[in-house]
Every structure is written in C-alpha cells, then in structure tokens.
C-alpha cells in the first residue's frame, strides 16, 4: 500500500437520526502520524463523526476509508460482519465513560482482544499488557477489578486496552469529559505520550488548551458541517469565521 494515502479519509459523510440530519456531508483526511482535534458545541455532530469512522453509527451517505480500505463497504450480512470485525481491530477507540469490562480484571481487559482475536499466546499477551500498563503508569493495578480504580485510572486502562490491539489509529471520544478536573491531566499526559510516538489520532474534545497543545490540525464543527479547519494557532488565535469566533469566545470566557 502506498504511504501517500491518508490513514483516515472521510468523503461526503451524511447521517440522520430520524428527521434530524447530524452530519451534512463531511470531508476529512488524516495523514499517517497526524493528530486531528475536533471541537464544537454539543450536538454539532463531532461524536457522531468519530463513531461513524468506527462504524458504531451507519452513515446514510458517504464513505469512510482506513489506510486504503473502505470501512463502510456495501457488503451483506455475514460478509460485512467479518469485514468490519477485521477493520475494527486496526482502530482503537476510547470512550467518555471508559466502558471497561467490570467482570474482568485490568489485565484480562487488556489481553482479551489479542488472545481471542489475534491468537496471541497468553504469556505473550500478559507481557504486552504489562508493558502497556507500565507505560500508562498502572503496573501496580494489573490484577485489580475496574471498580477499584479512579476515573482517570480507568481511562488509562481503556487506552492500554485499545493499544493492545496495535491499532493504526486511535479515536478518542471526549476521553476526559467524565473525569474530575484533577484527574484530567493524567489522561492527557498519556495521550501526549502517544502523540510523541507519532500515533495517528482523532480527538473529539472540549478542552481547547489540550487541543492546542497536542493537535497538528483543529476542526471546528457546528450544525453537522465543518465550519473551519487549520493549524491550532490559526483556529484559536485568528479564526476566520464568525461562528468559530463566538464559540471560542464563550468557551474561553467560561
């Protein structure tokens, strides 16, 4: 596969929930190793866009591509099921509410994917999980159940769980929105570390400062369209569109 091809590409994405059109033709391209932050008010469609990339939402129109493979291929039934399960193994997704499996320990949460889906030997998966937990600073919680962890710890385990599949891209859906303010930094630090390792990332966030620090490019969405996009310095310091200006003003004064 050519390295010129974008890692993630969205073309003309449309999505409606009933009569409400939440995505009105979105185009997006993320290069290998690039970090794109998606900002915008609630209901702007930014989470729906991210979820569509992973096919948690089925688009009504448009295409999603991951590294040269169409994610939302027009296949039927079992054929699509097989296809999407393969594609999803190459994307890591992190949710606002962590969604750790409460009946499994931290290490079981992490090794489950590699062992079952990739046929990795248990010992190898444990070593991998141990390394990832050290990386997110939770090596001592290896045998704990999720209920014993703080929100920030849960989210760091969720990130480790996603990384265990060695994904090509990481999708973060408001990963710090459900956290107490003092726990946000520990999660952001892990994301910054991934950024330093050139992980391709799409980050839906309400944290403008973090977006400005970590992103190569910022997309401002409102009303189901991309209103404005560019380097963080341009978007945050010199937004061109009135809607972007008023959104940022409200946000930064809050």
């Amino acid at each position: 596969m050519s390295t010129q091809r974008p890692m993630v590409e969205v073309r003309g994405a449309r999505k409606s929930f009933g009569a409400v059109e939440v995505l009105k033709g979105i185009d997006l391209s993320v290069e290998r190793g690039q970090i794109v932050a998606i900002i915008g008010p609630s209901g702007s469609g930014k989470s729906t866009l991210l979820r569509s990339i992973n096919h948690l939402e089925t688009l009504n129109g448009g295409e999603v591509w991951l590294d040269g493979v169409q994610v939302n291929q027009p296949l039927n039934g079992q054929a699509f099921e097989r296809h999407i399960n393969k594609v999803r193994q190459q994307m890591g997704m992190v949710f606002q509410h962590f969604n750790l499996f409460p009946h499994l320990t931290v290490i079981e949460n992490i090794t489950m994917g590699p062992v079952i889906l990739k046929g990795m030997a248990k010992a190898e998966a444990r070593a991998l999980a141990h390394g990832l937990l050290s990386k997110v600073g939770l090596a001592d919680k290896i045998d704990a159940y999720p209920s014993r962890l703080s929100g920030g710890q849960k989210q760091r385990v969720a990130i480790a769980r996603a990384l265990a599949m060695q994904p090509k891209v990481m999708l973060f859906d408001e990963a710090t929105s459900a956290l107490d303010p003092e726990l946000v930094d520990e999660v952001n630090a892990v994301m910054k570390q991934l950024a330093a390792e050139h992980m391709t990332m799409l980050i839906v966030t309400h944290e403008m400062r973090f977006a400005g620090e970590v992103a190569d490019r910022v997309l401002f969405m409102d009303g189901g369209v991309v209103v404005e996009e560019g380097p963080p310095a341009d978007i945050f310091r010199a937004p061109q569109k009135e809607r972007t200006r008023s959104f940022l003003k409200k946000y930064l004064s809050a």
């Binding site: 997704m93 509410h97 969604n99 750790l100 889906l117 599949m165």
Partner: peptide
Amino acid sequence: VDRGQTEAARTIGFSRFQ
C-alpha cells in the same frame, strides 16, 4: 447490560457472538 459494553467489545473487533 450497558450498551457501552457492547460498543467497547465491538470496537476491539469482537463479533456479535463473541
């Protein structure tokens, strides 16, 4: 069972049945 559990499992790549 919280829908987020199913979503998390599916995004890892598990089939419906798994």
